[in-house]
Design a protein around this nucleic acid. Sequence first.
DNA 1: ATAATACTCGAACGTCTGTTCTGTGTCAAG
DNA 2: CTTGACACAGAACAGACGTTCGAGTATTAT
Lengths: 226, 226
Amino acid sequence: MMMMVRKSKGLGERHQRILDFIASYQREHKHPPSIREIGEHCNISSTSVVNYYLDQLEKTGHIERDRKISRGMRLTGNTPLGDMFRVPILGVIQAGEPIPVPANADFGSFTPEDSVEIASSLMPGKEKGKELFALQVQGDSMIDAMINDGDIIILKPTEDARNGEMVAVWLSDRNETTLKYYYKEKDGYRLQPANPTMKPIMLKKTEALEIKGKVVMVIRKVERYN
Amino acid sequence: MMMMVRKSKGLGERHQRILDFIASYQREHKHPPSIREIGEHCNISSTSVVNYYLDQLEKTGHIERDRKISRGMRLTGNTPLGDMFRVPILGVIQAGEPIPVPANADFGSFTPEDSVEIASSLMPGKEKGKELFALQVQGDSMIDAMINDGDIIILKPTEDARNGEMVAVWLSDRNETTLKYYYKEKDGYRLQPANPTMKPIMLKKTEALEIKGKVVMVIRKVERYN
DNA sequence: ATAATACTCGAACGTCTGTTCTGTGTCAAG
DNA sequence: CTTGACACAGAACAGACGTTCGAGTATTAT
């Protein structure tokens, strides 16, 4: 009755309701709903009416249907959302403490509380399949890296770096942890701050320098500051 | 014959093959395979044998099955990943230019190239359902906000702010865009840099101040720096 | 007003799908 | 050798599922 919408009006209320249901059902169950399930949830008593609407949604490109199999339907969306993965948060990184580094077991199971979800599309292609770990910055002393207290940094474990890569290093002689761009030079190493107004750390080859990881991403949740 | 593997060997080759097939089929089709499809692809000629293996995989926790519906099966994985959403990237934010602000249509359809995917779990609860937009930072002049050239900032559109919130403002008298913490004071406004070593901007009430949005997140892809 | 079009309904039907059952083959232990 | 456990096969079946059809209702255009 009141649910009848003319085709000339474009995507109607019932179309949208069906799409919403398909989307939320798919998210929850990882498979599409059946026609009868769509009917039950959208107050449509006949499978042929659901079919009628699905045909229209297929015609407008919102869904794709495979008529040869059960539950053969999926949302196209304008763009499907991509993949996501979890990165374990191993602890904090702060100036005067060694850097927590993952053991092999740290890449296995982890819970929402000690991991962070990252959309795959945010990661450069070469880091996607890699085992990454996250650390939360504690303190104000990574300012020279333009990184704030509370920021989450995501690292690829490595003990080597190429020139120009931002690394997390532990300088045991100085009892210092720092994040800087790494450059190997003739007779030592240069650790260059991301903040261009600040001076680099110059290290001789004899000085201890432990690269613990390469920084690939920084995430900052900006909160109200009091 | 040669495919028969004793249970005492743990998760067998055929178990793994079935799991791999389920995973790749699910990724491609967005729904699980049927038992006959699993059989065809894993060289199992009888649906009862597929059922036999699925029962075992269910028992070991690798899959969940819903026996009341067709294709009622899904991989468990360690932890279900949550939701994700897209935020439109409207353009760049740079020092001497007005800030791109969303029109209503900007929250509708968008493509991967002009949007960024964000895991819902990264967003504070109160921003989750909101219409957000993203801007890419261009230039070095947001340094006082500890924000780099190339960073992506995510904003909630607003023309008001509360004390302590980081806002994107356009100061038309100065022809300047800036990101700072906002404080309303007795006879004007104070825009405080995130970098504690830098000075605030003090504005009189008569000076033009256009708040365009509140910053809720900063994402930095750390690349090699040459 | 009528005619055309779009939407809605329910029954019936064919196909997909998973389960159950029975039987066979292999292996290890007694 | 027998027995029991496990792996495998195929047939049969019940139920889930989507499609088709005819009829009726609502809306729009003329």
